[in-house]
Amino acid sequence: MAHSSQSDTRRKLLELFSEANGNFISGQKISEMLGCSRTAVWKHIEELRKEGFELEAVRRLGYRIVKTPDKVTANEIQLGLKTKTFGRHIHFEEEVTSTQQIALKLAYEGAKEGTLVIAEQQTAGRGRMDRKWFSPKGTGIWMSLILRPPIPPQKAPQLTLLTAVAIAQAIQEVTNIVPDIKWPNDILINGKKCVGILTELQADPDRIHSVIIGMGINVNQTIEQFPEEIRAIATSLSIEKGERIQRAKLIQEILLRLERLYEQYLQYGFRPIKLLWEGYATSIGKEIVARTLTGTMKGIALGITDEGVLMLEDEDKQIHYIHSADIQL
């Protein structure tokens, strides 16, 4: 199974190519910057080629990247990545049961904050209540991010709303489509779901060990690639946009937005995030149905509290605070 925990040399090489922005860098300069021989540089270049990168090598000018494969490998994500820590450590696999499971294990073993687990295909992607999340090969973004926020465990659910805002911003940046967020963190375009977020918390009663944010994003699926039973409710970015989207670029944008919002959140709390969330929220002021294990409730979605909890006003004008439910618009 192709999997990579990258070397520092490779990371530096990709940073150099990121800075060069499509221009040539001489082999001499690369070997100086990386502190390795030109033969070693050549070996790294060959490995990138094997992964599907197209590199041009011209005598006296050096190397430049002409084309990247549409993959979600560490190499491709880090080429052009602008974050400080998010996605600086990437664990890539071609096929996994679920990126969430691997991230949990890595977190347990002490993986750093910002570590990203990503795969081309998940065979057992899942959502809320153990529902299946359909994640076929090479079409979408199936990834899990490890965070270690210094906040009390009871605040951690706010991070799921923060994540939805970051992904919505990134989608808007890359596709020019303004998506909707359905409480708490589903992302919809034209009423159909294209992003699901599921988060797992490992904590002592007073301290968080890790928060694993699982993100499933339908990017390049065609409608035929969705199982028939979900075609009416699911969509992909390329279906909505009418063209293929480069996944690595979207991932870079998501990581950057996530990192910025996360820093803001740690410094100023949930308030600024709440405002951004409300800007994308689709259900506020409308009648919705909330389903839980214990019952169904209909009412007007008034908004969210400063904790991110959904406020629902029923027929009798009584306000209910909803912490978890399936929302139907």
Binding site: R128, T160, T199
Partner: peptide, 9 residues
């Protein structure tokens, strides 16, 4: 325990 699609075992 679940709140806002965050699951805590």
């Amino acid at each position: 325990i679940e709140a806002m699609k965050l699951f805590n075992e």
